[in-house]
Simulated assay, not measured.
Amino acid sequence: MSKLGKILYTEDEIEKRIKEMAWIIQEEYPPEEDLVVLAILKGSVYFLSDFTRALKRPVLLDFLSIGVKRDTERNRIITYVKDLSIPIKGKHVLLLEDVIGTGLTLGTILQHIESFSPKSLKVLTLLDNPKKRLLNVTVHYSLFTMPDTFVVGYGLDYEEKYRNLPDIYELKMR
């Protein structure tokens, strides 16, 4: 059984940080060069939608969908359910991630994306949980540093539920 706990980040706080981050990021990429914004399905969909609408420049969008089988917290097998659809060779790529914890899954995804030879590859996360980090991955941009708790809402789920909530909540497990 699970129960919603306190709101950690409100819809207004998320919107404000997205607008701030969009301004910062669009200043870093030359407007005449392609920027591919790549999101990991499903958790990043709301974030992707709001973030790309806040950018005042053209972008190309693509998605990865992964499957993760876990033997233990440190032993994961990642499969690509949906791989890249557009060529990214020689293009700037900004990877949007919902939550970065251990860094193990992200490290594997970054290696996969790098195999397509983008001009640059940076990571933007909605929530960063550096206390969980096991692999030293570079997170270039982060909207929030989260407490070490399980969260839902704004695309984040528990058993495919709660994604549609506009705020991000702590989820209490019982």
Results as ranks from 00 to 15, higher is better:
K131G: 15
P87D: 04
I100R: 02
S44D: 11
T138D: 15
P166F: 01
I66M: 07
Y162I: 01
L41H: 03
F116R: 04
I18T: 01
F47I: 02
L38V: 06
I77D: 15
F144P: 00
G5A: 09
I18Y: 00
T52C: 15
F63D: 10
K132H: 14
I113G: 06
Y29V: 01
P31K: 07
I25A: 11
L135T: 01
P58C: 13
V123D: 15
R133Y: 10
N164E: 13
E160I: 10
P30N: 07
V93D: 08
H112E: 13
M146T: 02
G43S: 09
F150M: 13
V123N: 09
K6V: 06
D62H: 04
N136A: 13
N164Y: 12
V45Y: 09
I78E: 14
L60C: 14
I25C: 06
A54V: 00
T105G: 14
I66E: 09
G103V: 08
D34A: 15
S2D: 11
I113S: 05
L124C: 06
S2P: 12
V68R: 08
T145C: 14
P87Q: 08
A54S: 07
L124E: 09
L106G: 08
L38Q: 12
I88L: 11
F63P: 04
D50L: 10
T72E: 15
E170C: 03
K132C: 13
Y29N: 03
H112L: 15
L143R: 00
V45N: 13
V36K: 05
L106M: 11
D83Y: 12
R57T: 01
F63Y: 06
R53K: 03
I66V: 08
L48M: 03
E28I: 01
G43I: 10
E170I: 02
I113V: 07
E15D: 01
I77T: 11
N136I: 06
V36M: 08
I40M: 05
L124K: 02
K56W: 10
G155M: 11
D34T: 02
V45H: 03
R133N: 08
Y158S: 12
E32R: 08
I88P: 11
Y80V: 03
S117K: 09
G101T: 02
T105R: 10
D83Q: 01
G101I: 07
I77N: 11
D128L: 09
L104K: 09
F116A: 11
F63S: 03
G67W: 05
Y29L: 05
I100Y: 06
G153K: 00
E28R: 00
L38C: 14
P87C: 15
L104A: 14
D71Y: 14
L8N: 00
Y158T: 00
Y154L: 08
